[in-house]
Amino acid sequence: MRPILMKGHERPLTFLKYNRDGDLLFSCAKDHTPTVWFADNGERLGTYRGHNGAVWSCDVSRDSTRLITGSADQTAKLWNVQTGTQLFTFNFDSPARSVDFAIGDKLAVITTDPFMELTSAIHVKRITRDATEQTGESVLVIKGPQGRINRAIWGPLNSTIISAGEDAVIRIWDSETGKLLREADKESGHKKPITSLAKSADGSHFLTGSLDKSAKLWDVRTLTLIKTYVTERPVNAVALSPLLDHVVLGGGQDASAVTTTDHRAGKFEAKFYDKILQEEIGGVKGHFGPINALAFNPDGKSFSSGGEDGYVRLHHFDPDYFNIKI
């Protein structure tokens, strides 16, 4: 396959997200402008100007009309996807890290980093259909975990919130009361900070990637460990194929150590693993730095990766990918 290279960002990529129809790809980077691309040919559709810091993550509503972004400028912003205009700004007292729309797009979960004396927190915001009625009030604020919460997503039926972060523990919270429901087993859990978390297409399980050079698959309700994928690099990004039983892990050595070694030593490939057999299927090379973001097109026929090198690489699979046998 010949990947499409998109060089719209000046700084390392942080997050990638496809809309539900799989025709738009949203990219966030440490430069301050999230960008939207056409997912088929990689053409840039527009940029969302207004943030004043690195943008850590984004999410798009199911009908592809609204985008939410979380940024290090201590805000999360709602955008009109089509025009790139700001609809609302949620102000926080510390950098916003992760954002995720609930099923139905009526709620959003936003995590904030520990900053100065503040601890990290998970905020649940109500999203109104009409942007003029939008308020910044939190429906719920959850505090407790030590260190940064790198990712928080909604569980099934919006009844839970799953969070993971620097303390390497995955937690499931009640999204109504904020009570801690489950905590991942210390024995089977990750040993180092969790960098990424991705839900399967049906939402029945999710995958976490960690700096302990492994990725783990968990049941979304019981939080039991299903599978572990061991690799030889810290995992920065994970993605699950919606079509085949494949998982993709992206990573590479720490960005600060990149220049001291040659690019082959860094292991900057996106590694494909068989979801069930936990065996490596193959690797896709290309980035000149660690992979920070991975996303699968909802049709499962293409995926994109974003690297520390500032490139988004959009890969449309060759036909023989779909017949790969181990």
């Binding site: 396959m1 010949r2 499409i4 290279l5 719209g8 691309w37 990689g42 193959g282």
Partner: peptide, 12 residues
């Protein structure tokens, strides 16, 4: 801004 890779990348 958008280029198609000149290099053929395979799933190795």
């Amino acid at each position: 801004l958008t280029m198609v890779s000149t290099e053929e990348i395979l799933l190795e």
